[in-house]
């Protein structure tokens, strides 16, 4: 299978990429790792007239803690996150999710920025970013704009990015002592998209009460779903209280809006939202209790 013809540009700076994006508007698509875009072009689901390849733009690939955030350049490939000792040790939710995206060979090409900008409801990182309360840094003709994860994911394959804007960086709040997270993903087979998945990030106070809770679901609606109601229920409560955790899991069940498809019937996915959220919460709490910073 061969994609429809397109004009190809390979800018060597973000400024040049933004100029091209402004010039071609809706006709253009940005190419990062290509692991979702290229298959869609081959299947002729999309036929962009212009491809702007970001792979030669320098300075978009990094992982570092700075200014209260874990900062990830948009072109950072999954394997860099997976192999990062910093991420493995301090950001278990991110590490666990990235290590389960597609398969190891795909992870050598796919990028963190591409994953969030593609905004496929079955992509793993939108829910992770919602659970962390992450921020997306976009750069466009009018300069930089910081977008909260809750505003960023608008719908299936839709983000808050405006014409001419490019995602430059993802900022995750820096790991505090007694923080922890987990990503529980149910797959039909290795490398598949999730049937259902739950992303949980928590911070506990000195008496083991929930100081921060982020819960979000993958593959359970038209976009990643943040389960605000469950977060509110847990805030301030003891993390040893199993009935609160069960209540939160029940709210995840209610928040899920799955549809029946080849990965399973609607009722089953809803049940899995509950089970996975409960397990992810228990795991996140366990990790938070032993994380000293």
């Amino acid at each position: 299978m061969i994609p429809a013809p397109f004009e190809y540009y390979s800018p060597s700076s973000l400024e040049e990429a933004i100029e091209l994006l402004e010039r071609f508007g809706e006709d253009a698509k940005l190419l990062a790792g290509g692991q979702s875009l290229i298959p869609m072009m081959k299947l002729r689901i999309i036929e962009p007239k212009v491809i702007i390849d970001l792979n030669r733009v320098p300075g978009l690939s990094y992982i570092r803690e700075e200014g209260g955030f874990l900062r990830i350049g948009a072109l950072t490939r999954y394997y860099m996150v997976e192999e990062s000792e910093l991420v493995r040790r301090r950001y278990p939710l991110l590490h666990e999710a990235v290590s389960q995206i597609a398969d190891p060979v795909v992870r050598n090409m796919g990028t963190v920025g591409g994953n969030v900008c593609h905004s496929d409801p079955a992509n793993d990182l939108p829910a992770v970013m919602l659970a962390y309360g992450a921020e997306m840094v976009a750069v466009g003709p009018n300069g930089e704009r910081v977008i909260g994860a809750s505003e960023f994911f608008r719908g299936p394959y839709q983000t808050d990015l405006r014409p001419g804007e490019i995602l430059k960086e993802i900022r995750i709040p820096q790991a505090k002592p007694r923080s922890g997270g987990a990503y529980l993903k149910l797959e039909r087979r290795a490398g598949d998209f999730a049937i259902a998945a739950s992303a949980v990030q928590v911070v506990l106070d000195s008496s083991d009460r929930f100081e921060y809770v982020g819960i979000a679901l993958t593959s359970l609606g038209p976009t990643a779903i943040r389960v605000d109601a469950a977060e509110k229920v847990l805030l301030g409560r003891s993390s040893s209280n199993l009935s609160s955790i069960n209540e939160a899991a029940e709210l995840a069940y209610k928040a899920a809006e799955p549809v029946s498809d080849l990965r399973g019937p609607e009722w089953y996915k809803r049940e899995m939202a509950k089970v996975l959220t409960k397990r992810a919460l228990l795991k996140a709490v366990e990790r938070a209790r032993s994380f000293t910073g």
Binding site: Y8, S10, L31, G34, Q35, I38, P39, K42, D53, N55, Y79, P104, V105, V106, N108, M109
Partner: peptide
């Protein structure tokens, strides 16, 4: 292998 890493060559453009 592309620069020492395994990639799926049906999902990389030659220009990349």
């Amino acid at each position: 292998l592309m620069n020492g890493r395994a990639v799926k060559s049906c999902t990389v453009f030659a220009v990349m």
